[in-house]
Design a protein around this nucleic acid. Sequence first.
DNA 1: TTGCTAAACTAACAAGTGTTAGTTAAAGAT
DNA 2: ATCTTTAACTAACACTTGTTAGTTTAGCAA
Lengths: 189, 189
Amino acid sequence: MKQQNRKEEIVEAAAKLFKKKGYSAVTMRDLATELGMKAASLYNHINSKQELLNSIILSIAEQFTEEMSNIKNSNSPTAQKLTDIVELHIKLASENTYGMASLNNDWMHLGDQLQHYLTLRNGYEDDFRDIIKKGIENKEIVNENPEIILFSMLTTLRSLYLWIPKKENLDINSLSRSLSRILIQGIDA
Amino acid sequence: MKQQNRKEEIVEAAAKLFKKKGYSAVTMRDLATELGMKAASLYNHINSKQELLNSIILSIAEQFTEEMSNIKNSNSPTAQKLTDIVELHIKLASENTYGMASLNNDWMHLGDQLQHYLTLRNGYEDDFRDIIKKGIENKEIVNENPEIILFSMLTTLRSLYLWIPKKENLDINSLSRSLSRILIQGIDA
DNA sequence: TTGCTAAACTAACAAGTGTTAGTTAAAGAT
DNA sequence: ATCTTTAACTAACACTTGTTAGTTTAGCAA
C-alpha cells in the first residue's frame, strides 16, 4: 500500500516553502531538494503543484467554516462568541503555521478550486458580521460601524500565523484570554 | 529629455499587478500587455523587474520610518500618539493601495535591498513598541503584554490597504476616528 | 532638409519551468 | 525463488522566464 506518510511530508514541506517564498516562487526542484530527492520523484506521490496548494488551503478553510457554524449557532452572549472566534483562530493558526500563509497570501492561485474557496470565505465573513451586528442590536457591543469592527478583528486574527511561531513557550490559553480582552475591551486604562 | 511620466506609469502598473498576483507570478510580458506594449520596450524606461519591486517597497517604507520618528519625538500623550499612528497608516494606505501589497507580501523578494528594508521595518516596530511600553509605565494604557498589543494594532493597520479600496465614499477622517476608538477603547458596550 | 533622440518594435538567447516516460533497486508477498 | 509494488532515479519535453541586441518610427532642433 502507498505510504500516506510520505505524501504528508511533501505537503508539509510544500506549505513551509510556500510560506517562506510564496507559491509562485517555489519550484518543484526547490521542494524536492528540501526533501532530499529529485523533482520527478515527487510525482510518485502527488499529481501536480496545483494540487498541493489546493489541499493545503482548502483543508484549513473547511475547518474554519465548520467551527464558525458551531459558534454562530450556539446561544452564548456576543462577547463569548467573539472570544470563541479568537480561540478558534489561535487554535488553527498554531496547528497550521505554514499552511495559514498560503490561505492568506496565495488563495488567488487556486485554480479550479478558487470559487469554492471564495464561497467558504464569504460565508465565514458573513457569519462573523452577523454576530457583530446582532451584538450591536442587543447593545452588547458598542455602536460602531460593524464593517470596521469586523475588519479590525479579522485582520488581527488572520495574522496570528505570523506571530505565534515567533514566541517560544507561548501559553495558548493565556494568549487567548489576553487577546480577547484587548480586542473587546481595548487598551485604555 | 526622458519622459519621467512613462516610468511612473510603469511602476504604478507593476504595483497593481503585484498586488493582484504577487511579484513572482507577474511576468514582464504581463506588465507590458497591461501597458499596451511589448516586454522589451519596458527596458527603455526601467533597468530590471527587481528594480521595480525595490522602488515600490522602499519608497513607502521610508515614508513610514520618517513619519513614525516625528510621532515618537512629539510630546503628545500616548493615546494621541497611537491615534497619530492610525492616521499615518490610513494616509499611506490610501495613497498607495497597490504598493502596500508588495510591502506586506513581497518584501522577501527584495534582492540587495532586503537588509535595508528589514532595518527600516525593525526600527519602525521598535518605535511603536516603545510608545506602547511608555504608555503602560505611565498607566495611560492597560497593563497587557505589550507584544500582543503591538501585534494586534500593527496587523490591523497593515491590512488597511486591502480594506480601504473596497469601501466607496469612504471619509478618511471618520475612518481614522472610528478605528482609533475601536483599537484603543475596544467594543464593549 | 538633416540629424538626433525617445520609445516603440522584432528576434533571439540562455536559463529555468512543470511534468512525463521509462528505468532501477529494494522490500514484501506468494 | 519469483512476482509485484513502491519510490527513487535519469533524461527529456515543450514552454515560459527576464533580458539583450539591433532596428524602426516619429517628433523636434538646427
